[in-house]
Simulated scan of single mutants.
Amino acid sequence: MHTFHSIARHGALVSRRSALAWGVAALGAPALALAQGEGRPLRMILPVSAGSGADGAMRAISNSLAKALGQPVVIENLPGAGGITGTAQIVRAPRDGSVIGVVSNNHVVNPAVYRNIPFDSLADITPITVVGTTPFVLVAHPSVPARTVQELVAYAKAHPGVLNYGSSGNGTILHLGAAMFVDQAGLDIRHIPYRGMGPLMNDILGGQVQLGVVAVAPAAGHIKSGALRALGVTSAARVASLPQVPTIAEQGLPGYELDGWIAAIGPAGLPRAEVYRIYQGFQRALQMPEARDALVAQGYVIRLPPPEEAAAFFRSETARMAQAVKSANVKMD
C-alpha cells in the first residue's frame, strides 16, 4: 500500500525547498489579502470531536497561526457522520477566507463508504495544504490476553467472534484501519462504532471495548502508564515516540500500512490571494518553535506542500482509499 511518503517520493508532493520557493514566488499576492484578513476572526471548522488527533493538533498551533495571520483563530468542532456534518458547513462557507476547515483521511474515505454525500469531496473544496502526517497504533485493553500482533491473531483465531474493536464511526479512517487488519489477518472480530475519537478512547480505557486503531498522540500517555497495551503501529517504520512498539507489518502482515494526515481546506472558489495568505500563515506558524515542537510532540511529521500539490494529493488519496475500502470490504453497518 502506498503511503504519503511514497506518494511524495513519486512527485505528488514537492519538497520543502520547492514549497518554500513556491511561497516566495507568491508573496506579491498576499499583501493585500493579509490586510483584508487582519483583525476579523478566522473560523476553523473541525469535522471531528474534541480530543481527536486533529483537534489536539490544531489547538496546539492555533495561537501561532493567529500570530502568523494577524487575526484571531476560532476553532469549532462539528463532528458526526464520519466528518460529513462538519465538512458540509465548510463547503457552504463564504468564499472570502473567513472560514476554513481542517479535515483528515476520513474526507477521502467517505466517498467510498457513503452512498449519499451532500457535496463533492473534490470539486466542492479548495485544498490549501497538508499540515502533517502521523501513524496510528493498534491498542488493546490490558484484559486482552495478547501482547503482540502474533498473540492477538492466535487468540482471535482460537476464539472467533469473542473479541470486539471500536472505531470513531462507521467508515472512518480508524474503522478502515482496524478492518484492514482484521481482513488481512483473517479474523472474526466484531466492530463497535462510536461518535468520535474521544468517546472511543474512553471506552477502550474502561474496557467496554477491547481493541482499536487510534492516533498515537492521545494514546501515548495511556500506553506508557499501562492503561492501554500497544500491539503495533500502522506505519512502514517504527515511531520515535513509541520506539519499543513494532510495526504491524513486521509482525506477520507485511502488506499492512496506513498513515493519518490532516489538511487545511476552504470552500470551492476560494480566491487565490486568500489561499496564498492562509497557506503562508501555516508556513510561518510552523516555523515558530512552539508550534512546530507541539505538533512534533503529538506524533506529526510536518509537510506543508503548496496548494497545487495538496490538490494532487487529495485526488491520489481518494483513489487509493477507494481501493482499500473495496479490499477490506468496509460497509456501513
Rank of each mutant, 00 (worst) to 15 (best):
S18C: 11
A35N: 07
S121V: 13
R284K: 13
N202V: 14
R238N: 03
V301D: 14
V73I: 15
Q323H: 02
Y165W: 10
G11M: 06
E274Y: 05
I302C: 10
K157D: 03
Y276I: 08
I100L: 12
A240I: 06
H159K: 01
L187D: 01
I45L: 12
M180E: 13
A324R: 10
D183Y: 00
I192Y: 03
L78K: 13
V14F: 04
Q184M: 03
L122T: 02
L174Q: 15
A8E: 10
L187W: 01
D293M: 14
P41K: 07
Q210D: 06
A81G: 05
A66K: 15
A146S: 00
V301E: 12
R229C: 03
L69Y: 15
R43M: 12
R95Q: 01
Q244D: 15
M197T: 14
A240C: 09
V275F: 07
L138T: 01
P193R: 07
Q323E: 07
I45A: 07
Y300K: 11
R284M: 07
A31H: 02
Y279A: 03
A178N: 09
L65Y: 12
A268H: 02
E257G: 10
N116V: 04
L258V: 00
A156S: 06
A146Q: 05
A291S: 12
V102W: 06
H191I: 00
E76Q: 14
L258H: 02
A215P: 09
S18I: 06
T134Q: 14
M201V: 12
V239K: 02
S167F: 07
P306M: 09
V144W: 01
S104K: 10
L42D: 15
W261Q: 14
L228T: 04
A297K: 13
L20Y: 11
P127W: 12
P254W: 07
R229G: 09
R115D: 15
D293A: 12
G252E: 05
S241T: 03
V325F: 02
D55A: 03
F119W: 04
G83N: 10
L253E: 08
F314V: 06
I248R: 05
S49L: 11
V144Y: 00
G266I: 01
A60N: 15
I84E: 05
